[in-house]
Design a protein around this nucleic acid. Structure first.
Lengths: 183, 183, 183, 183
DNA sequence: TATGAATGAGACTTCATTCAT
DNA sequence: GATGAATGAAGTCTCATTCAT
């Protein structure tokens, strides 16, 4: 692919992330406008609106996966786990809007997004295991429910449009539930 | 209003609840078809798609409010609180889809839905206070964060499409966080 | 026809005259509301919106015909002619709106309105002849062009939404053209 | 704008002028069909039916303004004035239908049409003044009533669907009224 | 007869997608 | 490759007309 084509692809992707993060119902034309390209260019790189949304979601998920992988190398496993959890929740609103837009487009996420999601979940699973091994998280919490809590906290924070302070208090309650019994 | 008109109104509302619960992006025509009436009838009862969505959401919220009010009379305040919490989460998926559809229709919930929402929150607040007075829920948990947890758990369960078993384990963790310190 | 049916018919007609005079694009429902009857009643008396409009127009035209016939008996033929002319122009706006509504309904005026129109034109023709015989109007002005002037002045006054003063000055110019040569 | 787009814009405008001139209540689809383009194309060039109608009306008014301006340079001021008057009346029917369609679309003419109208009136005012200065039109006729006569004659000719001969006789009467007193 | 709820064709408008330039 | 004009299916909503109550 030519260099300028590469460039355009990136600009479209960035524009899409911004627009769909704000307005899940935005039109493809809006994306083109923000990216500063013609609408034809958007469709050349992403033959379908669904594919564009998937690409955006994939980028987001890969970023999270990378962050999780990075944190997996840290010494304090508990801090790594809870730090990642908090960060995901803090950044949730944009990503969720995108996921919803994708859903509304009438398609479950395609292969690439699914892969990125799987990678992210795997990395998060590692963080969880290590936190449990170092006694920072209770042992009887299995991955599915912890992951559901991550999703739920993200969505709760987004939907209620929580102030950071309230969000932190919500997470503190949740983390208390996740920590091993102190008795 | 005539009896048959009442009937149709109910059928439209029921159809809308079912359809939008499944497919937030559904068309008004779909609702009419499921209700077995002409599209004109839908618009006669709900002059705007937004109003239809609001009506559906209002019904849902009123149902929850009534349930909360009812539980507020029970002897075991802790059981009442956690029972309501669990029920809301269990039934969340449909209601959430409706709320999303409403949002996508470009309007914050109107007066009636807002009222019903406020009523529901108030009743839930009462359940929380009583649970705290009877030492079933920790005292330092204020309403905003607890409500955010309710929303979040609902959305998490819905989004992840959790099996009941996993959902219960998720809630168990959450409830542990909400209970007073066990030390 | 029963007395109350007669009554309803009149009320519908009056309401239609008022509404269509103001708002040529008004709906039949609006007429029913103003008349204080159900929409079914409107359609029972006037099976078609077009027929309703025609009835209204017919009433108007008959009123004008009667006025012209009445004036034909007056002594001063010139005063009668110009008086009628001025009155028609002054009252034009409502009637025109109705005629337009009828036109927009996609039908030339039907039999009854045509008859009433013919009657009115005939009476106006008599006024003109008598005015010419008494030297109040020039002899070389034939009916078609004088009638066109009547229509035109009516429409001009209506369209331009003239103040009465300007309208009178306009008519004065026109009347000067209609009077016999002053040499 | 690309050449082919320019072309289509013109074709749509021409089609609209023809259709709305004949049938004020015509649908946008009809315009598209006559123009030989998809309905989407009509809306791309004129995002609203109202805007399309305005554009058509503006074109018409600008044409008249240009003609008036052109005539203002002629030597015989009287001939210029009466010539313009006659031409406006002769071409009135189409323009009027368009103006009505615009009115029915629920909007007073927008900026561009208003501007064009003002320009036309100004140019017509100049024609009038010059005709008065050269004693071709009576001095006590002010602009408002003369303009009302122009509108009225146009509408009268249109509404009555006059044959050219009758129209000319009507105008002759009107012009006699406008000329200075011959005594 | 009166009522007003039901109907559905048709209007305007949006937007994902295609294709000539 | 890029552009943006063209397309038309689909959605929301209106309203003349019909029909059950």
């Amino acid at each position: 692919m030519r260099a300028d084509a590469q460039d355009n692809r990136k600009r479209v992707l960035a524009a899409a992330e911004e627009i769909f993060g704000r307005t899940p119902g935005a039109s493809t034309e809006d994306v083109a406008k923000l990216a500063g390209v013609g609408i034809g260019t958007v469709f050349r790189h992403f033959p379908t609106k669904t594919e564009l949304l998937e690409a955006v979601l994939t980028v987001r998920l890969e970023r999270l996966r990378d962050r999780a992988t990075e944190l997996a190398g840290e010494a304090d496993a508990g801090a790594a786990f809870f730090g990642f959890f908090s960060q995901v929740v803090a950044e949730a609103s944009t990503k969720l809007a995108i996921a919803e837009a994708l859903l509304a487009s009438g398609s479950a996420a395609g292969a690439s997004a699914r892969n990125a999601g799987a990678g992210m979940r795997e990395a998060f699973g590692t963080l969880l295991s290590r936190a449990q091994q170092s006694d920072a998280v209770r042992d009887d919490a299995d991955f599915p429910e912890v992951y559901a809590l991550l999703i739920g906290a993200s969505r709760g924070a987004t939907a209620a449009n929580l102030e950071p302070l309230v969000r932190d208090k919500m997470l503190e309650i949740l983390y208390d539930g996740l920590r091993p019994d102190r008795s």
